[in-house]
Design a protein around this nucleic acid. Structure first.
Length: 220
DNA sequence: AGCCCGATTTGA
DNA sequence: CAAATCGGGCTA
């Protein structure tokens, strides 16, 4: 109780999303992602994100200024949801960054679940053991570690495409941010081997040592 | 640790 | 028509 009120007063506003993209990506670590849906409330602390910076970044969907119904929202103001589908069955949630006509986005790769864990488990189609069971921490980490798991656990699909995170049931709040500089880690992004010179850019950011960082990213 | 596969959409 | 900002299930 009172949790919603506390969160709303700490809700991240437009000014927050107006930071330069790499700075915003780091600032998002420790922030809490919240979705107030018809099925209930789910929330979690962001522990891993990646920046994509079209049109130059060849890993970005907006590379070379690609503009389509899919990428359109990235050409608008920051703080909106860019949701896309990959491999025919998964959805991934991004926060639009950069001013209008600058198609940047930040992929939300993993959260540490804080609220609505049973709803997350139901959406994911997995059973969550009792909190005191030895398997609990491990299963909890499987709920939303990885961009498609995060989206599924949070009830995000194409429905949320274009939602304004500043003014919608899907939003961000201060949570535990800002994270101390010493807790911040950076490295290359995942699964973008096709991106030429941009493949090795250290534009993936995560909270060092956090067990909820997605498996393929945990090192260093 | 590694391979394979799914089920859709996009862009070349 | 190939490839995709991935995850699950299997083999071992």
């Amino acid at each position: 109780m009172g949790e919603e009120g506390d969160r709303l007063s700490d809700r991240l506003d437009r000014a927050f999303f107006c930071q330069p993209t790499l700075q915003l990506a780091r600032a998002l670590l420790g922030a809490e992602l919240v979705h107030v849906s018809a099925d209930g409330v789910t929330a979690g602390i962001l522990v891993e994100v990646e920046a994509y910076m079209g049109p130059d970044d060849l890993a970005a969907h907006a590379r070379k200024g690609l503009r389509s119904r899919r990428t359109e929202v990235m050409y608008g103001p920051p703080g909106y949801a860019y949701v896309f589908q990959v491999y025919g069955m998964h959805f991934c949630l991004n926060v639009v960054s950069g001013p209008p006509e600058t198609p940047h986005a930040i992929l939300l790769r993993a959260i540490e679940p804080t609220e609505g864990l049973s709803l997350m488990a139901r959406r994911r189609g997995v059973a969550l053991p009792p909190r005191d069971a030895p398997r609990f921490q491990r299963q909890k980490a499987l709920l939303a570690s990885g961009p498609a798991r995060l989206a599924q656990a949070m009830g995000v699909d194409r429905t949320q495409y274009g939602w304004d995170l500043v003014d919608s049931p899907l939003y961000l709040c201060r949570g535990r941010s800002p994270v101390a500089e010493s807790e911040l880690a950076a490295g290359p992004r995942i699964n973008i081997d096709y991106a030429g010179d941009w493949r090795d850019k250290p534009w993936r950011f995560w909270i060092r040592g956090n067990p909820h960082v997605s498996a393929r990213s945990r090192s260093s």
